[in-house]
Amino acid sequence: MRFANLVLAQTGLLWKPIAMTTDSVSAGDDPHRLLADVRNLVGRVRRDQRLTWVALLTLAVVTVGAIPFDWLFMKVRCDGSGCMFARRGMLYYWPPALLIAYAVIAVSYVRAARARGLGARVLPYAITGAATAVVFTAAYTAAAAYFPSHPPFGGGPVPFWWIVLDRLIAPWGLIGLALLVLARLERNVALLLFTLAYLALVLVVLPTTDGMHLPEWGIPSFMSGTDIQPRLAMTPPQLIVGAVLLAGGIGFSKAHRKQQR
């Protein structure tokens, strides 16, 4: 009976090789089985290296944390024809916040992987994230310096691709771009699908850079001043982005715990 088990136990990397020797197996060993075992082991390592939920929760916290900065440091100038606003808080908050967030994510990945006895593959993601902070700062500064005197498209209506580009180089779009890199590094199809849906939301659906105009009945009376309107309009898209990242983080956390059992 035990000998029968021994024979069976010889054929899998994941099974205890009771009669293991350091000799190589015969060349006739099933290559299908060897390749399947390699794939299983590699898949296991990838799952053990993942800490997707930490990345998403960190980014959710950073996104929600931007709201008071945006509100407090927004410069609003209103006249009879409407309001002009400049989101100065974005420039004060996002570059350091993104750098800190990606540093936190990288350190968390490395520590968790090391605790499990593995190396981490997070460095390219952290570098991409840091690069997005630089891209955002450069783009925002250049736009703030150039566009007031040279309005795009002569101050007329802008095409949709311009709006998408504007949203892409905003922090919420850049977060999505960096998440694509993480999905590639982790070979994580679920994260790829989440990121594509997230990018569709922040680039096409949510007016992250223009603001979401709330109906009159939705605004409390003590917030009815004209300079409060633009501040209020910018808050819901950021709350929605934060909520989506939070929901993603919770979902990936639950899936991770399920896999670890």
Partner: peptide, 20 residues
Amino acid sequence: HQRVRLGILAIAHEARRVEF
């Protein structure tokens, strides 16, 4: 071409570094 050693190499390759 030995399943345990192939497994060690595959894990070490994917993990960059792996603990005993």
